[in-house]
Design a protein around this nucleic acid. Structure first.
Lengths: 338, 338
DNA sequence: CTGTTAGCGCGTTCAG
DNA sequence: CTGAACGCGCTAACAG
């Protein structure tokens, strides 16, 4: 076998099958039916022996159809993001598209670079879980006719479907549950809200409605990975509300992780001091007596995002999903049992 | 703005800059220096106003260089895989390549399809964390001159670098630690080893060397997600070795998760009955008194895999890594403290 | 230093 | 139902 036996081309298949390029092209395209049975078998055979595979690059060049979708993920190491990515990927496959996943590590610069790349590869649609505010580049895609869907986070001045959790409902459900369980004071812990519309919405909703649930409340922002500032906020909170039944509500999975560590550092008994988090994680059931969470329907969110895109790419293949905003599911565990 | 204002082409830039296609091509290629400063600015300006971006598809078509790497991941929802993927991605970026990540969900059929796809997109290299035994297709890539590197799992009859943990060392370290801590009997819990050379190696090594560490031992394979069979095995094990200090060693992160649940179901006191796992997870520190683990250097593994590939794609850009087999790090916690 | 020419592999006319 | 010819956007020779 030669060192680099070039990938075989459509022409070689055609020759070996005693047919023309066009016929082979049709065979691999959407018009296989229109070829005579005899030709079909000849081509199939030839392609088989040569191990031929149409070159997507060349294909895309001609029709402008890359059959590629791009996805921007702010933090791939977040299990929640992974779960959604998984849904997105499944859906892509289903529609016959491939997916280029780009992780930005919450860095706007990487985000810019990745968007350029995705453009260069002619993706036909974009699922964006933004890190910064790449409105400039997103508009670029839009004006080129490339559909975009926003995942979990909005981007200023970019009009596109936003698929994700119903944040108001989530906060409301959490507050209701905590109130029901008899907690009287709640501390809301969130990661820095600047870069994420979702964090902002949850935080705001919390501040606006905690009172209506008859709860005293405070908020604290996580500044570093250790939550040093929040440790302080937490002790202060507990001191201030000594006479109340206290609980902490975590704005997302990462907050839950950090706060759980804090609880252990302070030796707080889970439940007596309530703990609840948005995002369900593998281990929430494992930390005794179990951490109560609000689970997001991640697969559905991912699938829906792709469906939005497909609806605009191939309107006949997918209809516009009716719901873009999803309700969480309450998973009750011991950490909110007094 | 027109509905689909085609992405501008090299020709348009050339015209607007009053230059030729070639010069523009050179400007965006590796020969920018060789253009006169005046031409450079003209092109830069023209490209800027047109928002021009070279089309990678067309580029790849010509030179056969797609600047794309492919990665096959057996299970993207496994945090360990994610961590490695993250390393791979970072390294790609560093070498100016993009990455198409394909998750196979441990399904050989999906694996086949994804390999075809990656071929169709002309990836220049492949990082493979295999689900099945796609030797046929991998050989195809190899004979086409596309370098391959195997991640964590070997594939029968495919000769390629295998990057991953030093499994023997890992098992030895675990056994040594358990013996040191005074445990006398160890149960090894592994996921089904059929599809994974790594699981086989660990299992085998365990069976072969547990005795040398003066330990009684048994093994159990996880059959379903609940570990029903292992629950039985675990009670049997504890009954049999009532008079011994018992411990369980988990072959990977998922096993640790399941076994931890089992411990809770049985009300086993962590530490009194030892528990240790290969793979470090977010929550291992959180389940009191903390679960002892052997952490893999995931970022390093990912980076090394890419480096192998790059060494064969652009020998001048990367040298062959010296070490392909990595040592784990012992993270000692309460679960192995009697 | 710069422009001209010829394809890369394929899909798509448009005749037969 | 089939085949010949053209061009997608770009880079690699090869002039000048």
């Amino acid at each position: 076998m030669p060192p680099t036996p070039r990938r075989s081309t459509i022409l070689e298949v055609a020759r070996l099958a005693g047919a023309s390029k066009t016929s082979v092209s049709r065979y691999f395209g959407a018009e296989r039916e229109r070829l005579s049975p005899s030709l079909q078998t000849r081509i199939a055979h030839a392609a088989g022996t040569l191990g031929y595979q149409p070159n997507q690059m060349a294909r895309g060049l001609k029709g402008g159809r890359s059959k590629l979708l791009g996805m921007l993920v702010a933090d791939i190491r977040n299990p929640f993001s992974v779960a959604i990515t998984h849904g997105v990927e499944q859906a892509c496959r289903q529609y016959g598209f491939s997916l280029i996943v780009c992780n930005t590590d919450n860095d706007p610069e990487q985000e810019r670079q990745h968007l350029d790349l995705l453009g260069a590869y002619q993706v036909e649609g974009l699922v964006v879980n933004a890190s910064g505010n790449p409105e400039r580049q997103l508009h670029n895609f839009i004006s080129l006719g490339t559909p975009i869907v926003l995942l979990d986070r909005e981007v200023d001045h970019v009009e596109a479907e936003v698929v994700g959790l119903d944040n108001h409902q989530a906060i409301d459900m959490a507050l209701e549950h905590l109130a029901d369980q008899g907690y009287q004071a709640v501390l809301y812990v969130s990661e820095a809200p600047e870069q994420s519309s979702t964090r902002q919405k949850r935080l705001l909703r919390f501040s606006q409605t905690a009172e209506q649930h008859g709860l005293n409340y405070t908020t604290s922002l996580l500044t570093d990975m250790n939550g040093a500032a929040t440790l302080q906020a937490l002790s202060d909170f507990l001191t201030t509300h000594q006479r109340h039944a206290c609980a902490v509500l975590c704005g997302n999975g990462n907050a839950t992780l950090i706060v759980t560590r804090l609880f252990q550092q302070l030796g707080l008994p889970l439940g007596t001091v309530g703990l609840m988090g948005i995002d369900e994680l593998d281990w929430c059931a494992l930390v005794p007596p179990g951490i109560t969470t609000l689970a997001q329907p991640t697969e559905a969110i991912g699938k829906t995002a792709v469906q939005c895109l497909m609806h605009r790419i191939e309107p006949h293949a997918a209809l516009m999903p009716k719901e873009l905003s999803f309700a969480p599911t309450l998973i009750e565990r011991g950490s909110t049992q007094r």
